[in-house]
């Protein structure tokens, strides 16, 4: 079931994940697939897309990067926020070992995915990357779900010094049959998409584009003729790399 109009939910819990990232747990549930997102509305402020970290209870992890997310961070337990959705195509869960690669708040949809994969008995290794140790988010959630968690920081303050992509490459070396699932900065996704292509690894990537309607009509989240809000936000390696004629719907393949 999709909430077509923004619907009010009360905030039950707020947790600081890092100096700039907060997780909001709401009173209420929706039915969603990992990788799907909701449009969060704050009246008189704006309405922006956020991945679901969980659907029951609804959980959002929000990085403070600008006016809307600053307003979200001013909310307190007991305050309300509004959301519509869930929207988009989530991750397709494959029955083989999983390597999850998260850059920054890209961990959000992957934490949801990890929980579902583990519930289905799939082995999950997570490469979690950030600039500094204090910017690593949701590591506890992955551990609680029963994943092996491998950290990377660009400044070397915790775990591997370098990028989550380096860690991911090693995890794939150890797990040649694995499928890869990733969310994070565009450059990271591009690099991982190339890696998947080279190695023949099935990869799925959650992308971001400037999104407005979330309904597949306004065209603002166009990525080479694909709509991030409706065809995505989860795409194949070829789609990430802008391969032509790779629309998810049959008519696109004409």
């Amino acid at each position: 079931m999709t909430l077509d109009l923004p619907t009010a939910f009360r905030i039950r819990d707020i947790r600081d994940e890092s100096p700039t990232v907060r997780t909001f747990t709401l009173d209420g549930a929706v039915q969603a697939e990992p990788g799907q997102f909701v449009m969060v509305w704050l009246p008189r402020v704006n309405e922006k897309p956020f991945s679901l970290v969980d659907d029951a209870p609804i959980t959002l992890t929000i990085a403070r990067v600008g006016p809307f997310t600053e307003a979200a961070h001013r909310l307190r337990v007991g305050d309300r926020l509004w959301l519509r959705g869930p929207y988009g195509r989530g991750f397709e869960r494959l029955a083989r070992p999983a390597v999850l690669v998260a850059g920054g708040y890209g961990a959000a949809p992957l934490a949801f995915l990890a929980r579902r994969l583990r519930a289905e008995g799939v082995e999950v290794a997570v490469a979690l990357g950030a600039k500094r140790a204090c910017d690593l988010v949701l590591a506890e959630r992955f551990r609680d779900a029963g994943c092996s968690v491998h950290l990377a920081t660009e400044d070397g303050s915790l775990g591997h010094r370098g990028l989550a992509t380096d860690v991911a490459a090693r995890l794939l070396d150890a797990n040649p049959d694995a499928a890869l699932y990733a969310c994070g900065p565009e450059a990271m996704l591009q690099r991982l998409a190339h890696l998947c292509r080279e190695r023949g690894v099935p990869g799925q990537f959650s992308m971001e584009r400037m999104m407005k309607c979330g309904l597949g009509v306004c065209g603002s989240c166009d990525h080479h003729g694909l709509l991030v809000c409706r065809d995505g936000p989860v795409f194949s390696a070829d789609q990430v790399l802008g391969a032509r004629g790779d629309f998810p719907s049959p008519c696109g393949r004409a």
């Binding site: 077509d4 109009l5 923004p6 449009m39 509305w41 704006n46 309405e47 922006k48 407005k212 309607c213 979330g214 309904l215 009509v217 306004c218 603002s220």
Partner: peptide
């Protein structure tokens, strides 16, 4: 840039939009 969000809603029997000619 057009109007800020929300710009398009599915309200039950159609859409309503104020994209604002972005």
């Amino acid at each position: 840039a057009g109007h800020p969000n929300p710009t398009v809603l599915a309200w039950g029997h159609g859409l309503i939009n104020a994209v604002g000619l972005s």
